[in-house]
Design a protein around this nucleic acid. Sequence first.
RNA 1: UCCCCUGUAGCUCAGUCGGUAGAGCAAGUGGCUGUUAACCACUGGGUCGUAGGUUCGAGUCCUACCGGGGGAGCCA
Length: 461
Amino acid sequence: MGGDIKQILAMPGDGTAITVKGWVRTKRESKGVTFLEINDGSTIKNLQVVIDDDKPGVIKAPGDLTTGSSVVVSGMLIQSPGQGQAVEISADRVDVVGTAPVDGYALQKKRHSFEFLREIAHLRARTNSFGAVARVRSAMSYAIHSFFQERGFIYVHTPIITGSDCEGAGEMFQVTTLPIEKPPLINGQVDYSQDFFGKKASLTVSGQLEGETYACALKKIYTFGPTFRAENSNTSRHLAEFWMIEPEMAFCDIHGNMDVAEEFLKYIFRHILEQCPDDMEFFDSRINKGIIDNLQHIVTSEFKRITYTEAVNELVSSGMTFEFPVSWGIDLQSEHEKFLTEKVYRLPVIITDYPKAIKAFYMKVNEDNKTVRAMDILVPRLGEIVGGSERESDHDTLKARILECGLDPDDYWWYLDLRKFGTVPHSGFGLGFERLIQFVTGMQNIRDVIPYPRAVKTLEF
RNA sequence: UCCCCUGUAGCUCAGUCGGUAGAGCAAGUGGCUGUUAACCACUGGGUCGUAGGUUCGAGUCCUACCGGGGGAGCCA
């Protein structure tokens, strides 16, 4: 009988014959007995293998049994007389499948820094931390789909290559088959009519505009896919390639939008606390003390909802001296966001009704003509995690806003069409998947919550 | 892109006032009847990021470049 270590650890140690396959994490040798810890990634926990010297011939090649080597172990699953594990394997046979020579295998049985592990990204999944991140990331992906699917949202695959060069969400990566060293020119400019698509193309920075078109047909949709930003930003919160979740709902105003976003975050947190207790325990004890309590607190609390104007008043009246002085009209800086969510409310905070000058053209303008129906969710430690809004559903107002923002309405003809034919109030939000993982796991650097991070000057693997 | 810090053994770091390098972990060998961050003893392991410069002499001081980290901006 074989199986995953996760299943084996849940079995009674009644002497059943089993076979386990995995990688050696550590080896402890005493006179007369050798202990191996085997991990196969199914759980953060290792399975202890006991090799008794009284049973000769159990190990075929003892010298090859090093940290990192892959093995197949057969034996009896018994109750462990030692502390620390309920069951263990009393081995009858240990075969080394693949050796891991000591000189050259960088991942020895000791703690390694995340910076070092980033340099051996092809091996780092074999560590406790990265195994746990991978399992939590997978469980969160599943929870994202189940949250929306349970509520009747349709999963829409918006395009990765886009011709909308003006979404305004950030710098874009260009996609071309033209020879970049010598592109065809017309009047001194690159002749994109000869390019693959016959026009300039880029990788998407957001699926929102396309998502809106499907929401205005299927009522409730969500996207969950890769997104690309070519910004030259080198921080622990930015990637050039990341995954984004973008729900969009027709017949939904800013309040319904906030309700869904808050419910969504709580659902994800609750799901991970329930489904990944071992991994979360690891994050709580080794990565970020108190993270479980934080998440539980959030799951059972109401998010604080305030307007931008109230937020500014709160900051001004706090008496705090900020590096960037606060006044109505400024964009809130990191220090302001962190102050509100970490010091004032100690909870996620939803801020709405921002000045229209600092927000995107597609957000619905309020009756005061000064603010828009934007909503950002701020969380402790990370700052903004969700950005969303009720969209402008009036054709003429939207067109005026496009012009006001210095954009060309012709580039948005199909987006404006939505407001011509059966327009409807609709809302949505976007959230960066990796930032959500950072928040759940407590991992400091976003490059450590995605298998192979893409960032400025980073493309080794 | 800007500001700050940093680069010394496989890893994490110490290295004083400028005088040719040290610890812990990892690894190897030996010891120990059941370990679990195993323990005890011993051993091996270095072009001090790269290139210049100052100096009798540079890991140490200066300059440039490269890599890493933190913060800011931009944002998700």
